[in-house]
Amino acid sequence: MNELQHPVRTDQPENRVASTALGTPPTGDGWGRALSARGISKSFGDVLALDRVSLDIPAGQSVSVMGPSGSGKSTLLHCLAGILRPDAGDVSLGDEPVSLSSDAARSRLRLRQMGFVFQDGQLLPELPALENVALPLLLLGRPRAESLGRAADWLSRLGLSGMEKRRPGELSGGQAHRVAIARAMVASPAVVLADEPTGALDQATGAEVMRVLTAATRNVGASLVVVTHDAKVAAWCERHVEIVDGQVFNDAMGQGDLR
């Protein structure tokens, strides 16, 4: 079923990059790039986690990747992000190779072009929310004042004004996830990758996190890839890919009716 490809969308609605409360059009050089995987395979020992998977994700599209435990969905996300290097096939972001480059080059690509929201937030516990969000910009070499200013702006957009000085341990689960979303968005990434972003949250908070995440990426025109086992979470995305036994089992456009 991995040959069942979703056609590359070219009909990006103009209003998705309009300036809104949750974002402004990105200025980074990664904006407008499609994420593409071509026949990627990945094994761990004798276990074939991904088997010749191909996937094209147009700029600005939100995609859910679902599948049972051990199906290879997280491995797919990690290969798309350049965290793992596939054994065969290649991944590219626009015309920039993701999978073929060195670990250092892939790291730089993640820093410049990608944002991440993982299940446990992956925030640095020692830094207050503001500095956590500003971290990617500081790592990119932006001046501290500018970095903190943009971080404060993103925290404000996500309804976290007044919480800039709080550390992750002083935030609720939902608030911590919104900080993680702000951090993922602050450097204007081309694509945001989320691995079970609501896994540690209750249903209502999880829905709120997905609403914020999809709105933020939609309004800046970034692609969004969400790995989840929860159909309610997947329903926030426009397109749904199902992975079974390391292959694309189903790939269909959804209603995105929760968006």
Binding site: A104, R110, Q122, L123, L124, P125, P136
Partner: peptide
């Protein structure tokens, strides 16, 4: 451990 892997996730290279 956690913070090192988080920094790697954010795009900091192994050498960095």
């Amino acid at each position: 451990d956690q913070r090192l892997s988080t920094l790697r996730l954010l795009g900091v290279t192994g050498a960095q």
